[in-house]
Amino acid sequence: MKKDPFNVVVTGVGGQGNVLASLLIGAVLVDRGYKVTIGETYGASQRGGSVMSHLRISRDRQYGPLMPPQQADLVIALEPSEAARILGQFGNPETVSVVNSRPVYPVDVISGDITYPDLDELKEKIRSLSRESYFLPATEKALELGNPILSNIVLIGYAAGAGLLPIDVDGLEKAIAEYLSPEKVPINREAFLCGMNMVR
């Protein structure tokens, strides 16, 4: 890792598999000797609300479960407007963003009370708040694999393939088998490799 602590935010909407994604990243890295702290949002927020996980990754100490403002090094966003929400609070000119392009509309947008930002303008805003940003059709890829929930692993695969996280497919397989269950390895392996292969 280039920086210590290396701070990652995994963000999205309740039900997108955010907590699982950060658990797997953390489990792989703890196995590689890192001290990892993950702060998560649970409970009522899961019902349609924004859900973010903070990962604090360090070689030498256990950091707190929430990061200070403007300290994110990497943002993995399962939903584009959630990337903007996180960059607005935790981004800095060096932040790198990996973003699923597909919006999940808040019920407030569905009801017509507010509007969702124009997608091209939203992407431009994310670019302007990131040193590098990558936009991926992760949900579409996950639907091809049979389940939209796999978009989280597709994004991790991409981040790993782009050299943003020191994770390989073997480490991920071991973590899934140990922390979840061995039966879940094949489909997640496929999703991870799918993400990796999207790196050009």
């Binding site: 349609g48 407007s81 903007a84 929400r85 607005g88 407030d108 969702y116």
Partner: peptide
């Protein structure tokens, strides 16, 4: 306190205000 540069901060404020729509809690 540590702070980001001014241009970045104003873009960040704009992102929060205009590009991060509220998400009310809702039944699944």
């Amino acid at each position: 306190r540590p702070h980001a540069d001014e241009a970045y901060s104003s873009t960040a404020t704009d992102a929060l205000r205009n590009f991060a729509p509220a998400r009310s809690l809702a039944f699944c």
